[in-house]
Amino acid sequence: MKKVLTTEEWIAKRRAEAAERKKRSKPPKERKSAFVTSYRKFTEIASQAVYGSAHLDPKGYHEYLPPDLTALEIAGHARAALLASRFITPKHPEWDDVIRIPTKEEFKAWEEADKARAGVKTLKALFNGAGHVSLTLRDGKIAIKPTRYRGHGHWEGIRGQEDTVLPEDVSVEELGRAILDALDISRSA
């Protein structure tokens, strides 16, 4: 006869199974990540700390630039941000400080700072006409992914939109044009 587990026993069993799966799973492939967000009044380019997910890196590259960057300028900053990105494993001493979901207060502070930088009072005004592109460097290739504004300061993928994939040693001009094209796709999605 099969024993019926109590709720506590069932939870303990599921946690043990999850821990065992985690032990057997392979760590994610090493990569670098950055983003470019172009608002009407400024452009933000930043590197990210990555493991399974990507998070703003407080020790990384983070610049606020004019909104009308040329292909050469945007590519130079984007490449610098990608190179500054860090792959942080769970054993890294900064893991708990970097690879985490920001608090509501941190999101609010970022939004308020961006609204002040743009000279607007609402998120709707801040994100009106904005575009966002994620950059990922892995295995010698740069993937450029435009996203669309979802609302409440969040971005999401664009259905049916393929990433632009370029070799890591792509020319600065070609990288910049690809980023600017992806920003245009993001704005119009």
Rank of each mutant, 00 (worst) to 15 (best):
residue 93 P to C: 05
residue 38 S to D: 10
residue 78 A to S: 06
residue 81 A to L: 07
residue 47 S to T: 11
residue 33 S to L: 05
residue 95 W to K: 00
residue 29 K to A: 13
residue 134 S to F: 06
residue 131 G to M: 02
residue 31 R to M: 04
residue 75 A to Y: 01
residue 25 S to C: 11
residue 26 K to M: 13
residue 45 I to L: 03
residue 13 K to W: 12
residue 31 R to C: 02
residue 40 R to K: 15
residue 27 P to A: 07
residue 18 A to T: 12
residue 98 V to C: 04
residue 10 W to E: 15
residue 65 L to P: 01
residue 54 A to T: 08
residue 12 A to H: 07
residue 71 A to S: 06
residue 101 I to K: 04
residue 32 K to S: 15
residue 59 K to Q: 14
residue 84 A to G: 04
residue 30 E to R: 13
residue 35 F to Q: 05
residue 24 R to L: 15
residue 88 I to L: 15
residue 25 S to T: 14
residue 46 A to Q: 09
residue 33 S to Q: 13
residue 124 K to M: 05
residue 48 Q to P: 05
residue 69 L to R: 01
residue 106 E to R: 01
residue 95 W to Q: 06
residue 18 A to I: 06
residue 19 A to G: 03
residue 84 A to R: 09
residue 123 L to H: 04
residue 94 E to P: 10
residue 88 I to D: 11
residue 10 W to F: 15
residue 79 R to W: 11
residue 66 P to D: 12
residue 25 S to H: 04
residue 97 D to S: 11
residue 30 E to P: 00
residue 22 K to G: 14
residue 85 S to I: 02
residue 108 K to V: 07
residue 57 D to P: 12
residue 136 T to W: 09
residue 62 H to E: 15
residue 48 Q to N: 09
residue 65 L to A: 10
residue 87 F to P: 13
residue 126 L to T: 09
residue 135 L to D: 04
residue 120 V to H: 03
residue 67 P to H: 02
residue 98 V to W: 07
residue 87 F to M: 04
residue 106 E to Q: 00
residue 62 H to R: 12
residue 102 P to F: 03
residue 28 P to E: 11
residue 65 L to C: 12
residue 100 R to W: 01
residue 43 T to Y: 02
residue 128 N to T: 08
residue 42 F to M: 14
residue 134 S to I: 15
residue 69 L to H: 05
residue 68 D to W: 05
residue 60 G to N: 09
residue 40 R to I: 02
residue 56 L to S: 12
residue 11 I to Y: 09
residue 116 A to K: 15
residue 43 T to L: 04
residue 31 R to Y: 02
residue 64 Y to D: 14
residue 130 A to E: 12
residue 40 R to V: 00
residue 20 E to Q: 13
residue 134 S to M: 11
residue 65 L to R: 00
residue 32 K to R: 15
residue 136 T to G: 05
residue 61 Y to I: 07
residue 109 A to D: 12
residue 73 E to F: 00
residue 56 L to V: 06
residue 58 P to R: 11
residue 105 E to W: 00
residue 16 A to Y: 00
residue 112 E to M: 03
residue 43 T to D: 02
residue 26 K to W: 14
residue 91 K to S: 14
residue 10 W to Y: 14
residue 42 F to N: 13
residue 34 A to R: 02
residue 84 A to Q: 08
residue 130 A to W: 10
residue 96 D to G: 07
residue 76 G to T: 05
residue 48 Q to V: 00
residue 72 L to N: 10
residue 77 H to T: 02
residue 41 K to G: 10
residue 109 A to W: 00
residue 24 R to K: 14
residue 115 K to H: 10
residue 110 W to M: 06
residue 60 G to T: 10
residue 127 F to H: 10
residue 39 Y to Q: 00
